[in-house]
Write a protein that binds this DNA or RNA. Structure first.
Lengths: 161, 161
DNA sequence: CCTTTGTTTCACAATATTGTGAAGTAACTT
DNA sequence: AAGTTACTTCACAATATTGTGAAACAAAGG
């Protein structure tokens, strides 16, 4: 059924798939469909780093149709980029540079957006201390979070690509 | 059809409901069901601040059954607390003190948890520079985020409750 | 003790999400 | 030009999520 090298490769792939699944699970908490998460996970760890939809689909066990749909999603989110090579009809995908920083920043921006909602709530019911206190508390904490990030030093750039 | 005071009250309630809906929409991005989000929004802005399931249900237009289910969810998440009064069978709910800080911290913790996943990925494929670079980048950014929060001054406590 | 009122449970309906299979289309190869 | 391969589209199936209605239940009031 295959020699020792094949068996080792198989075991590796299982381990890698397990990791890919963890990545997918993490992203599904953000509403990303399972296959999209698996693709991103796979593209994080695969070798070579740039692969076609077919290769990806075979690796993670998803249908071509699912690949089409989810590659589109991932591109729209700016997580992966699509590249073609001259004289080849196949498109290759890779994780976009800085994708995860964008993920993080987007998350934070979404969170801090609630500050506006809280502000509008206070406008709505007036500054009356007792009643507005609940909303003020929420506003306060989101304001704190926004400031933490505004004041934070930017992440050190990646040295090697 | 009602006097001027009633009409004003009605208009107010519509505005408030609109705000409640925005809160619900925000929370649904985190996977909270619509009704749970509405309840939380309502409890943020309602007067009096402590209300029964029946009152809440009538205010936001949800069935008693939905209330039961979603109040349970909100309590489990630590967002609202349930209180009974001696000699009354009715339970009253209110927004838990510090609920939103908990929301924010939970979100951040969830995000930074990905640092572990990235770390395990690097363990899996070895420190080989070229291939591990993608995962290292992800690890790097999540590490940055975790540190930003670890180093951040805590939010100033609420002065008035 | 029976009524009233408010809550809970549960079966089910409505809807939304996701992914597959099969057919269609496009592009390189020979 | 015909074949091969890869991707895309689309109808549909499987599943998951939510919320409702009706019936059961519990507690307070008469």
């Amino acid at each position: 059924m295959g020699d020792a090298v094949d068996m080792a490769r198989e075991a590796d792939h299982q381990e890698v798939l397990g990791w890919v699944e963890r990545v997918a699970m993490f992203l599904s908490a953000d509403g990303l469909p399972p296959v999209a998460g698996r693709v991103l996970g796979w593209l994080m760890i695969c070798d070579p780093p740039e692969q076609s939809a077919g290769q990806i689909g075979r690796a993670i066990g998803a249908s071509p149709a699912a690949l089409t749909t989810n590659m589109r999603v991932l591109q729209a989110m700016g997580f992966v980029s699509r590249r073609t090579r001259p004289g080849e009809r196949t498109a290759y995908y890779r994780v976009e540079e800085g994708a995860w920083e964008r993920v993080v920043r987007r998350q934070i921006a979404t969170l801090t957006a609630f500050r506006e909602v809280a502000g509008d709530g206070m406008d709505l019911i007036g500054p009356d201390g007792a009643r507005a206190a609940r909303i003020r508390e929420a506003h306060h904490i989101f304001d704190w979070m926004a400031k933490v990030f505004d004041d934070a030093p930017p992440p050190t750039p990646v040295t090697e690509t």
